[in-house]
Design a binder for these strands. Structure first.
Length: 316
RNA sequence: GCCCAGAUAGCUCAGUUGGUAGAGCAGAGGACUGAAAAUCCUCGUGUCCUUGGUUCGAUUCCGAGUCUGGGCA
């Protein structure tokens, strides 16, 4: 029998944190964050990380688990998340995934398989430099020869993905297009209730702008400075996070604060839109709308009603 | 009051040697299977300020007006 799994997803700044915690209280749930940046220690303000106080004694996982120079990606996420989920089931509790990283959520929910041997960073870097030296078309043509389907679906300018497809073939002797096809048809081991929190676009953007202003007031710049002072390099994946990459040039005097704030608001808006695009493509998603205008109990009731139906009364 | 420069897409502006116009940004849509808060793709009709004149034809040239900058009084 499939185990129940609740996912609270949605664009940044839509209120996932609060709702997931309230939901956990009502269901005896424990929260696993599906967020590519909140895993990192010392990155609190810029990631709008849940505070201890907000957690309100609800157990949270995948928060503050890594140092900013540690490797984190879907594979690491999935591995850790699965072990937390299993542990939560053993204790007869309900796992609630909360976060905005749709890619991670899918990998977890669909149980996509990733093998530890399927990666070679050096090889990938070499491919990047090939693209730089001979052009993106050169690299794309290379892919076309080994995996025409993948080449057809990946734009030549998207070097990261072109390179990964080539890397995948070299390492596994299998085409990534075929691998993806198989993974897409995988049957989920979970009985998942996937909720996407949403609100009117203009309202979301207002909240994003406001949240950035608050981050500045709360000392985001100082946080970035501390990270740099601790020796974390600006090229680290963690430092590509929103709020970090925009402010490093400010510290170096290469950009003024006002411009950086404008940039951060803008890229956060773009990000929210990309998240929404991702979730729109999830056929099983249940959209919870106007989350900003509604009472929290009203929202929780809607979520719980769906859960009751999906889980058929089990666990709840 | 006078002089100069502007007035074109939501914003900043380019341009049309006179044949009704295009970039960046904003915005919208999309893709995504090991960097995903990343990476990438697609989408631009607007009284070209108003009004006379010249012209087959004016947003473009000329005149007047209005507004906005800047300068001089």
């Amino acid at each position: 029998m499939k185990k129940p799994l609740i996912v609270i997803a949605g664009p940044t700044a839509c209120g996932k944190t609060k709702i997931s915690i309230e939901l956990a209280k009502k269901t005896g749930g424990e929260i696993i964050s599906a967020d590519s940046m909140q895993v990192y220690k010392y990155m609190d303000i810029g990631t709008a990380k849940v505070t201890k106080k907000e957690m309100d004694d609800i157990p949270h996982y995948m928060i503050d688990e890594l140092y900013p120079d540690e490797k984190f990606n879907v594979v690491v996420f999935k591995e850790k998340a699965v072990s937390y989920i299993n542990d939560i089931y053993l204790r007869n509790k309900l796992p609630i995934i909360a976060g905005g990283t749709g890619f991670y959520i899918n990998a977890l929910v669909n149980d996509n398989i990733f093998m530890s041997t399927n990666e070679n960073e050096e090889l990938r870097k070499n491919l990047y430099s090939e693209a730089e030296l001979f052009g993106v078309e050169y690299l794309h043509n290379k892919l076309k020869k080994i995996d025409p389907d993948a080449a057809a679906s990946i734009h030549p300018n998207n070097i990261k993905r072109v390179a990964r497809a080539i890397e995948f073939y070299i390492l596994t002797n299998q085409r990534i297009s075929e691998h993806n096809k198989i993974e897409k048809n995988r049957v989920s081991p979970y009985n998942t209730a996937l909720f996407v929190l949403n609100m009117e676009r203009g309202e979301l953007y207002k909240r994003i702008d406001l949240r950035v202003d608050i981050m500045i007031e709360n000392g985001l710049l100082k946080e970035v400075e501390n990270l740099i002072n601790m020796g974390y390099d600006k090229n680290l994946v963690s430092m590509q996070g929103l709020g970090y990459k925009e402010f490093i040039p400010v510290l170096n005097g290469e950009k003024n604060l006002e411009d950086a704030v404008y940039e951060l608001k803008k890229s956060t808006r773009h990000f929210a839109k990309r998240q929404l695009t991702w979730f729109k493509a999830q056929k099983n998603a249940i959209w919870v709308n106007d989350v900003d205008k509604r009472d929290i109990d009203d929202i929780l009731n809607e979520i719980l009603n769906h859960c009751g139906r999906i889980f058929n009364g089990a666990i709840l």
